[in-house]
Amino acid sequence: MIRSAPIALLAAVAAPMPAGAQQADLASVQRFLQSVTTMTADFSQADRNGRVLTGTLSWKQPGKIRFQYQKDVPLLIVAEGGALTFVDYSVRQVQRWPIRNSPLGVLLDPRRDLAQFARVVPGGDPRLVSVEARDPKHPEYGRITLVFARDAGGPAGLTLQGWVALDSQNNRTTVKLSNQRYGGTIADNAFKWVDPRRTVGRR
């Protein structure tokens, strides 16, 4: 199944939504996260300096995601085994931290109750649902705003368009998705990676 919609990630701020509508949208996002088994997509990633990188995304519930960057970018981000790993092959550096300490944790643990740490963000485009998630007890984990398009053919009537993440230093990263495909087969070894500290080369 392929889902893609050319909609801007962040819409203009609108009047507050009725509480009932917010709860319904948040419940739809919860069902989306619980019903997705796999997703692949193309992505473009922009930082606050305007640098744009592209690549492919593979996501498998629960707890696995891989950002494979374009060939000339020696970076890799992989989540598996409860850890999020950032690999920079150009300097043979690896950084790992618990998934739960990352804004991406909201995508990777569908058992979590969104009502405990997320809220619907009102927007000016009725075609979109935006949900901001953050841990109020741990502001150092940063926050993420997931953006969905309403799509009757998508999981729970939605398709994930991308997100905007802010870390504890307010560094902003915007990820936009296209060519989303749900429900395909992704082997678990797709989330393995080569440790550059032990060998030369990259996966």
Rank of each mutant, 00 (worst) to 15 (best):
S28Y: 02
I144H: 07
P103I: 07
A14F: 04
P62D: 08
I186L: 15
T85L: 09
T38R: 04
Q30G: 12
A165C: 07
K71E: 14
Q45G: 12
A24Q: 09
A190H: 01
K60G: 02
P18S: 02
R3W: 01
P136Q: 10
T173V: 12
A118T: 05
G124S: 08
Q180M: 10
K71M: 02
I186Y: 01
Q161K: 15
P74G: 14
D188H: 03
T185R: 13
R51M: 13
N101P: 00
D113H: 00
D72M: 06
R134A: 13
D47R: 09
L9C: 00
G82D: 09
G184W: 07
N179M: 03
T40A: 12
A190D: 06
G162Y: 08
L146I: 01
R181P: 00
A190T: 13
T40M: 06
D195G: 14
A190V: 01
D125G: 00
V194K: 13
R3L: 10
A15F: 00
F148H: 03
M17T: 02
G63A: 14
T199D: 06
N170M: 08
Y182M: 03
I186Q: 08
I99H: 12
L108T: 11
A15V: 09
T56H: 15
Q61L: 02
F32K: 01
S58D: 10
V52K: 15
V129T: 12
N179V: 01
R51F: 08
E80D: 04
G82N: 06
S35W: 10
V121H: 04
G123Y: 06
L84V: 08
F117S: 11
P136K: 09
V200W: 06
L33S: 08
L128G: 01
V52C: 13
V87N: 14
A41F: 11
Q180T: 12
M39E: 11
L114W: 12
V120G: 05
K71C: 00
S168M: 09
E140Q: 15
N189E: 14
A156C: 03
N170D: 15
S168K: 12
V147G: 01
D72R: 04
A149F: 03
A190S: 08
W163L: 00
V120W: 07
P196I: 11
V120Q: 03
Q180F: 01
N101F: 04
R143E: 01
A41D: 03
V131I: 05
T38S: 14
R100H: 07
P16W: 12
L177A: 09
V73N: 09
N49V: 00
V175R: 09
A79E: 10
A15N: 06
G153A: 13
G63T: 13
N49G: 05
S58I: 00
V131L: 06
Q161A: 15
S90G: 13
P155I: 09
R203W: 05
R3H: 14
R31V: 09
V129M: 04
W59N: 10
L104I: 06
M1P: 10
L10G: 04
Q61T: 13
A14D: 14
R181H: 10
T54G: 15
P98M: 02
S102E: 10
S58K: 15
R143Y: 02
D109H: 11
G153T: 12
D88T: 08
L158D: 07
Q22V: 05
P16Q: 11
T38N: 03
G184Q: 11
Y141L: 00
L76Q: 12
L75S: 10
Y182F: 15
L33K: 10
R31Y: 07
